[in-house]
Design a protein around this nucleic acid. Structure first.
Lengths: 122, 122
DNA sequence: CCGGATCCCCGATGATACTG
DNA sequence: CAGTATCATCGGGGATCCGG
């Protein structure tokens, strides 16, 4: 069974608000970086791991499986020794391009600063 | 103390990736809808509650406090009987306008459909 | 009207070890 | 290389009741 993929979407009610629906799909932990790096093209599992720094293999697998399950990411397995698995964006995933760029831009211009100022409040 | 506001930001390490930083700020449960409705202008607590449907008062308070704490939302209290509290966007909050509209657009065009197709897979 | 305080459960996540 | 299995933890979030 593919309960691993479904996991967090079992007995799940889609939000009526489109803004929430979008955030539901791309807002998971680490999904932002993963999608952003996949804009470059196909990437292998460990390569994605390297680019996301502190993500454990377990989390990496989980987030990628969820992205695959909702239809934003494609997973291609090459039955070789050693194994080779490539991840890439589906058409729906590619349609995220402007959104991901805007998220990056706003992050650079506002988010990073807002988060850093939390340490020295008032 | 304002530990209530800080809560989820205590012992918190800001993400290096700007995309993740943005999602960290606006990706919380219900934050998307809240920010989106606040684009219209000042709104009172119960009015926000009505617009967000299934959100409990507790969650509403929590999310609004976090948005206030990071500097995206301003909270104005009018010491009256009965109490009156108005929420509005700060300058940083207003700077989210294009991002929120894009999130809504992508949600309408892709996210809603992707989420609905999860019920009838394969 | 706008919350605060408490109790409590369960899923999300980390650490670690193992495998085809 | 690309994961899986298992254990343990921890905090998010619902339910409920209380207060100015």
């Amino acid at each position: 069974m593919d309960t691993t993929k479904r996991a967090r979407y079992d007995s799940y009610e889609a939000p009526a608000c489109p803004v929430e629906a979008s955030l539901e799909l791309i807002g998971g932990k680490g999904k932002g970086i993963l999608l952003y790096h996949l804009l470059e093209g196909k990437l292998r599992f460990n390569e994605l791991g390297r680019r996301t720094g502190g993500m454990t293999a377990r989390m990496l697998t989980k987030q990628l499986r969820e992205l695959e399950f909702v239809g934003l990411v494609r997973r291609d397995v090459y039955p070789e020794i050693p194994p080779k698995v490539e991840y890439s964006l589906t058409a729906a995933g590619v349609s995220l391009t402007p959104l991901l760029h805007l998220l990056k831009e706003w992050g650079e211009q506002h988010a990073i600063e807002l988060l850093n100022n939390l340490k020295t409040p008032q």
